[in-house]
Structures are given as structure tokens and as C-alpha cells.
């Protein structure tokens, strides 16, 4: 009983958090990985391969952020912000063909 209450208070909105940590984090990290080559200030090889190599760490960082942060609203704000801003970067990169 006590343990159940502790788990509930530890993780606010557990179902929404679980969905965010699994699907939301994977989608955000893939969008981020796809968009990074458009603006990273490296040589072409590093610009393309660097984000791919960093993907496991990007994903892990977002996963822990989404699980540990007390406020689920803040998690949504940050993940949505990252995903939308990078989706826009991808859009403009495709438009300009760079």
C-alpha cells in the first residue's frame, strides 16, 4: 500500500509518462538526429555521421529527462519544442535543398 502510494507520487501521470518515454522520446530523438546535419558546424562527414553515432546517447538523455522530471507538462513542452523546432529545420533544409 505504502509502496504503491510512493510509486504514484514519484511518477506523476504514469500512463502518459510511459507513452512519452517510449514513443515520444523515440520520435523526438529521430527527428533531432535527422535535423542536426542541417546546422551542425562540422565537415560534411562529421555532420552526417556524428548525429547518427550520438543517437543512443541522445535517446538515453531524453528518456531519463522524460522519466525523472517531476512535471509531465514540462516534459511535454520540452519534447514538443525540440521535435517541432527540428521538424521546421528539416522543412527549410528540404525547401532550400541544403
Amino acid at each position: 500500500m505504502t509502496s504503491k502510494m510512493t510509486t504514484k507520487t514519484l511518477f506523476s501521470a504514469p500512463k502518459a509518462r510511459l507513452l512519452t518515454a517510449t514513443l515520444g522520446v523515440f520520435i523526438t530523438s529521430t527527428i533531432l538526429t535527422a535535423a542536426l546535419p542541417a546546422y551542425l558546424p562540422f565537415e560534411q562527414g562529421d555532420r552526417i555521421a556524428g548525429p547518427i553515432l550520438m543517437f543512443p546517447l541522445t535517446w538515453a538523455a531524453l528518456l531519463f529527462y522524460s522519466l525523472i522530471t517531476p512535471s509531465i507538462r514540462r516534459v511535454w513542452t520540452v519534447l514538443t519544442g525540440i521535435a517541432l523546432s527540428h521538424a521546421l529545420i528539416i522543412y527549410f533544409a528540404l525547401q532550400t535543398g541544403s
Partner: peptide
């Protein structure tokens, strides 16, 4: 993940 997810994504953005 590279060949199935990440490489196509990189190609999508950087190489249309």
C-alpha cells in the same frame, strides 16, 4: 538502427 532507421533519415534531410 543505422541501416533501417537512421541512414534513411540522414539521406532524407541531407540528400533528398
Amino acid at each position: 538502427l543505422t541501416t533501417v532507421v537512421l541512414l534513411p533519415l540522414a539521406a532524407f534531410v541531407s540528400f533528398e
